[in-house]
Design a protein around this nucleic acid. Structure first.
Lengths: 365, 365
DNA sequence: CTGAAAGCGCTTACAG
DNA sequence: CTGAAAGCGCTTACAG
């Protein structure tokens, strides 16, 4: 009724004529209280405008009912949707959600995790920016804090994680192109991180089917692998000059790279973009170059973004179940927070190809 | 070095051979300590893997260094960008950011605010879903909690706020159409909330220039007003049957409504969509109807979304400075949290028309 | 079913 | 510059 803050359990107890222990029991909904006492306390509480101080409670219980999420960039539709999926679960359970951006930068990620730990979150969902340098995450896990990895794994860190089968998804996307006759398929991928043996070495090994530890590869590298595998299975040789590494999480950079690919005289007949940001860049380049889809170029994108359905033609794309990914990550985390000792789980979801109109059959000319 | 959690100031103090008060002073960076003592404590702290428990600190200081944001839907690009702007400021200042969705629903908004208050946030940024029923916000403000309103105002609630000049923005957008010869301009707007006198009454008053208290109108209603004003100023009669109220925050609903507008025989020569979601719906309808922009229809959208630049032609739109809006909201809030007693501020930003290629001159046929 | 007491992990006066 | 003591607002045994 009155002042929104200030009133404490002690104030309520005094007004109700009971002990703080009793007032606490009714206000905190624990232990037993006589109905009559309960009403008395409730009346006093509402008269004083009492509101629980979750801080004090958390200090004692050791639980904050708050989880932390470290995302690359909440403005990116990929993360925005996943966050929404997480938020839905979290809100339903009356938990709080603390969000920090990492910008895919290790230092920022470490600072983010520290901030969240100081605020005593009950658990963390992290989309790790580095699959190797992850002391901060290992320590976390060693200390017993519930942790769920999102989209990416960390070498040697056995914790719950949620992602899609990137290799299979990319393979299916590229198969859709190969099966309609395309033989020269360009790829525009982030592939920011360095790989042992370098870019060329990786491709060579991928072509030979020699890449073994694929689990801790970054998504865009895994998708490249799917691209290579599709070719290998189809017995189609790969022109490696059609594989373009952008090396940055930026649509602008992707557009510049895509441009050099689609404006060359012997341009590919089709392009595969390995994520939403790359897709934006590629579509920008296509638009700038004035190429018609799918007549002059076929295109398969990744992630189902708003615009893909209302461009004309619609853009065929591998749709990741982003909301469901967020839901799964939050659900796994909350289960751990509630004490689940189940073996480590990897929720590997499936991305589905949504066929719209950006793939045309291709006949050698 | 060791266990990530557990070690307390008392543990560190014991190991360092000092009092908890002294250990607290060095670990919490307050008060004076001899350099030698400091080092001793630091060594003990790192040996134990000490980490501040912000909860305990907050309980005493009364400050959590955390702000709360209640947004309509973090998945919507409008909110996603604003949140990013907020997050940037907040992260720079080592504050935490607690985010909750309201889905533009009053009950959810109230619950969200309560959750955030229990967690003792130092301040709140809210995009209120109801400009009248806002007891929860008024109480908050009465209790002295720093509060910044985003995008919308609340009648009679004098607090800092950030938004754009919606009437002027819409007016300029429509003027761009009128000045190129368009005389029949459709409008597709949310206008979910009811207005005194109803939809028709509102339009009548708007046409007569009789709408007075425009400040607490919802953005889409303000934008409708801008549309009407542009016509009035230009001396162009309005065919009110071209004004379409979607009544929902949904691109699908907008598309259905837009469709009935652009498929009628005497369809308008141009359409103005009053926000990002409506814009998506309209572009979907245009695409489904197979109309060519701008040859068969001119279009001005609202909010600069990714796809608007790479559709062909590009979509002309009123761009809201979303990141800057978030930045401003967070900055205002942090100033209040730091104790600023400055008079209430309304940061009214300007939206700029980005002309791309969706407006064609129109000549009566 | 209720209360007195202790305590969560810090910070804050107050002495010295 | 450092320490002993109190206290932030709750919950948790422990008695009764």
């Amino acid at each position: 009724m009155a002042k929104t803050s200030k009133a404490t359990i002690a104030d309520v107890a005094r007004l109700a004529g009971v002990s703080t222990a009793t007032a606490g029991r009714v206000l905190g909904r624990y232990g037993y209280t006589r109905e009559e006492t309960r009403e008395q306390v409730m009346r006093a509480a509402s008269k004083l405008g009492y509101r629980t101080n979750a801080l004090a409670r958390s200090l004692i219980t050791g639980k904050t009912r708050t989880i932390g999420v470290v995302a690359g960039d909440i403005q990116n539709p990929f993360y925005a949707s996943i966050l929404r999926g997480i938020a839905d679960v979290v809100e339903r359970r009356d938990f709080g959600l603390l969000i920090v951006n990492s910008d895919e930068n290790l230092d920022k990620e470490i600072r983010a995790v520290n901030l969240l730990l100081e605020k005593q979150v009950d658990g963390l969902i992290v989309s790790p920016c580095d699959t190797r340098n992850a002391r901060h995450l290992r320590d976390l896990h060693a200390a017993g804090l519930p942790l769920v990895l999102l989209d990416r794994s960390v070498a040697g860190l056995e914790v719950d994680r949620v992602g899609i089968d990137n290799i299979a998804a990319a393979e299916r996307a590229v198969v859709a192109l190969l099966s309609t006759g395309h033989r020269r398929i360009g790829l525009v991928g982030e592939m920011l991180e360095e790989q042992e043996g370098g870019f060329d070495g990786f491709i060579a090994r991928g072509l030979a089917g020699e890449v073994l530890s694929t689990d801790t590869l970054y998504p865009s590298w895994q998708r490249l692998l799917g691209y290579l595998r599709a070719h290998r299975q189809a017995g189609v040789a790969v022109d490696t000059s059609l594989i373009r590494r952008v090396g940055a999480y930026s649509a602008g950079a992707a557009q510049a790279v895509a441009r050099t690919l689609i404006e060359r005289p012997d341009r590919p007949s089709a392009v595969f973009a390995t994520d939403g940001t790359m897709s934006e860049g590629v579509i920008g380049a296509v638009s700038a170059a004035g190429l018609t889809l799918p007549g002059e170029l076929s295109l398969v994108c990744f992630d189902d973004l708003d615009w893909m359905s209302f461009l004309s033609p619609g853009i065929s794309t591998m749709a990741q179940p982003r909301l469901a990914m967020g839901d799964a990550a939050a659900t796994l985390l909350l289960e751990r927070i509630e004490g689940s000792e189940a073996p480590v789980r990897a929720v590997v979801m499936r991305a589905d190809l949504i066929e719209r109109g950006s793939i045309a059959a291709w006949h050698a000319r």
